Simulated scan of single mutants.
Amino acid sequence: MLVDDVIALVPSIPGRRALLGLTGPPAAGKSTLAAHLVAAVNDRLGQGTAAYVPMDGFHLSNAQLDRLGLRDRKGAPETFDADGFVHLLRRLRSERERPVYAPDFDRDLDQPVAAGLVVLPGARLVVTEGNYLADADPAWHPVRDLVDELWYVDTPRDVREARLLSRHLHAGRSLPEAQAFILLSEQPNAERIAATRSTCSRTVTEGDLV
């Protein structure tokens, strides 16, 4: 069971911290899986043992995307602050005596929110997830050396695209706008991410939680 495998990653020595990365295409269920694993670890080992820090908080703001002319590519690798994310992982690795604050992402606002999350000193496992954790681009490549394991979350394309459609409609796009964005942006991103699958430690699915 996945939960047992995650618990095996938790350091038994006080003061140590492990990082588990989950990657996969948009709407593969990464955030759902991460939240489930964190809750399960905390249920078994005590509250505060595990923390969740997604990559989504490092989306560039809409103002910056507009400045760069990238609003219609939101979600592509170049629309994230990769350096900021890598820096956060390094802090999580080295800082164990003070809280580490991290940005979150508000889907209703469609914007990052500064210091929306915190990892307390007692956390011995941090689960992070995002589209480009296994990407070969130099900006993202350091992630591989900063996580103990990197898992690829696999979900059928039709399931992912139904979720994406629902997500974009909820965000206020019309049906034609949502379908066009999935075709022109989300799908190319998904294909790029799928190419990294073989470089990950293992492949998992939401069904593996059962």
Rank of each mutant, 00 (worst) to 15 (best):
D154P: 06
I193A: 05
D56Y: 01
H87S: 15
P99L: 07
P156R: 02
D137V: 02
A180P: 00
V10F: 03
G29M: 04
G29R: 00
V127M: 12
L60C: 04
E78R: 10
L20Q: 03
L88K: 02
S12D: 14
V86C: 07
N189M: 08
R202C: 09
S198H: 14
V127G: 04
R71T: 11
L68N: 12
E191W: 13
V153Q: 00
A76R: 01
P99A: 09
Q111G: 02
P121F: 07
S201P: 06
P176T: 01
V119R: 07
Y152E: 10
T203D: 09
H87D: 15
A139S: 14
T205N: 01
Q64I: 14
P99F: 04
V147L: 10
L89V: 12
K74I: 02
V126R: 11
L22P: 03
L146E: 14
G172I: 01
Y152A: 08
R192T: 12
P188C: 05
V143C: 04
R202V: 07
Q64N: 10
S12W: 08
P26F: 11
L65Q: 07
A18D: 06
L37I: 07
D110S: 11
T23A: 05
M1H: 13
A134I: 11
D148G: 15
E206Q: 09
G172F: 02
R67A: 15
P99Q: 05
H59Y: 02
D106G: 00
L164R: 14
R91A: 04
A178H: 01
P25E: 11
H170A: 14
T128D: 03
L45D: 09
